[in-house]
Design a protein around this nucleic acid. Sequence first.
RNA 1: GUGGGUGUAGCCUAGCGGUUAAGGCGCCAGGUUGUGGCCCUGGAGAUCGAGGGUUCGAAUCCCUCCACUCACCCCA
Length: 416
Amino acid sequence: MYRAPRGTQDILPPEQPYWRYVEQKAAEICRLYGYERIDLPMFEDAGLFTRGVGEGTDIVEKEMYVFEDRGGNSLALRPEAGTASVCRAYLEHGLHNRPQPVRLFYLGPAFRYDRPQAGRYRQHHQFGCEAIGDADPALDAEVIDMAWQFFVSLGLGRFKIVLNSIGCKKCRPEYLSSLKEHYSPHTDEVCDDCKVRFQKNPLRLLDCRSPQCQPIADAAPKSTDYLCAECTEHYNDVKRYLGSLEIPFEENHRLVRGLDYYTRTVFEVQPEEGGAQSSLGGGGRYDMLIEELGGKPAPGIGFATGIERIILGLQKEIVPVPSISSPQLFIANMGHEARDAALKLSTTLRRNGTAVIMATGSRSLKAQLRQANNLNVPRVAIIGEDEVKTGTVVLRDMTTSQQESMPVGKLLELFK
RNA sequence: GUGGGUGUAGCCUAGCGGUUAAGGCGCCAGGUUGUGGCCCUGGAGAUCGAGGGUUCGAAUCCCUCCACUCACCCCA
């Protein structure tokens, strides 16, 4: 027996209302903020991600699905649904010629080869948006506001915004050296991962959760104390805007995020009760990324959310979601001639916009009605030999159990 | 990649060494020569995750593998 590959899942009809709900809320938020949809390839040149997301990141180093196609190209299933691909598309299609910033959103799968667990899958789905071409801190505020409003509109109650600034290429080197200075007396006490981080990616020392590293990380210098004048002003503006928008946020000097492209503002949406997967979504500014990908410099900011994690949250908080409507009419039929008539009637009704299911197979009327009942169809049209002879149908209301014989024409009239 | 937990029909569960593996939900059919939901009756559906071992005898004990799951790393 074949099974869905590890870390992937089938989204069966009973789960679909959650997905429709989240997608619809995402589209609505984007409409309100003027973000337009973009759909991107599921795979790209592997280099886009190693360059964009960063060579030394876990995502690229150990989680990316890389493969060679028959033409010998090195491709990768996208490990994030949006940012890198959107930037590539921005360059490829000359989107800098459109009014800046360009505001885009996307919704779709991303792929990471890690061990699955609750809220973590090898194929998961992200909704995110990007605003490229403007470094205004008001845009940072707009994007964080969007993320906030998105979660509010979903009806999720227990989450928070965590904020930090990790500076730019001008001020970060000084911060990093002071960070390493702080850690260097402790290189023996620190966990094995942090020993590597100390060498390879000192910034990430800060988001270690290993117990022995906590006191050291907590006492570490804060990036916000080392920001250059421009970054300080930018960060202060972002906070001021968020304040005036009355968006509650909490600063955390240890929030750094594991992707290389972030500059200045980074933020995360986290559940209030810190579950296993601490992040429902996150994002930040990436002012060097476009340039890094070979384009004329252009700043950008964006965020991405994990749909599976959102749905888990909706189910945990028992947020009601609209159900998907059942067909309006079920057509039961007995005998060959009735089948012909039922088939014709079904099609006529559908062409008029009525959702119809016709019974197939050769089951008893009783079985057909049972099926209609189980499918939650509110009304059933019954066609047997008598009805064929007289050109009528029996229309049964499944909620009241009332039924009435009528000419086919009247039925069509009723469903117009 | 590392650690814990769990694997009995589509789903949930009983059985934890002894003859044909039990029940509930769901599905199908009958109880009404053309009428659903409730009730009653019946039926289909399981190589008891796989392989090996112990034993007269294994779903049950042991070993190996696999899968699922939760957690770590890290992220959505």
